[in-house]
Design a protein around this nucleic acid. Structure first.
Length: 114
DNA sequence: GGTGTGACAATGG
DNA sequence: GCCATTGCCACAC
């Protein structure tokens, strides 16, 4: 029952929520989110959740989430070819070779900011 | 209901 | 310092 659309697992839902909390012009990593959820060793689940972000009715700024190297590993999951990079550059984030430059500078830690 | 995988991360040699 | 391997949890088949 309870088909109001919020029947996702707490873990996934939390990932979407945290991802939506990312401020404009900032980015975070899978490990940071996973750690914020209490499962630092489950960083893969964060990526998996974003992979299922299509299941979410709202738009999830998954383009603001990158791997520890600042590389846009999941850009292939976006429509088009470099949609993810374009979005990041549109927010003032320098991206080159599918990698975020000054990634540490734009890094947003949910465990710290929240 | 079991197996495999997956947009990662951390550790070891 | 770089390459290879393991750990992790939830979802898809």
């Amino acid at each position: 029952m309870n088909q109001s659309g919020n029947d996702n697992t707490g873990f996934f839902e939390k990932v979407y929520e945290v991802t939506r909390m990312i401020p404009y012009g900032r980015i975070t990593t899978y490990g940071a989110i996973a750690r914020y959820l209490g499962s630092a060793q489950s960083a893969r689940m964060v990526g998996w959740a974003l992979n299922s972000c299509h299941s979410q009715p709202d738009w999830v700024p998954a383009h603001r989430v990158v791997n520890r190297n600042g590389q846009l590993t999941g850009k292939v999951h976006f429509p088009g070819s470099n949609t993810m990079q374009q979005l990041l550059e549109s927010e003032g984030i320098r991206v080159e070779d599918d990698t975020v430059l000054e990634f540490k500078k734009f890094f947003w830690n949910p465990a710290t900011e929240l």
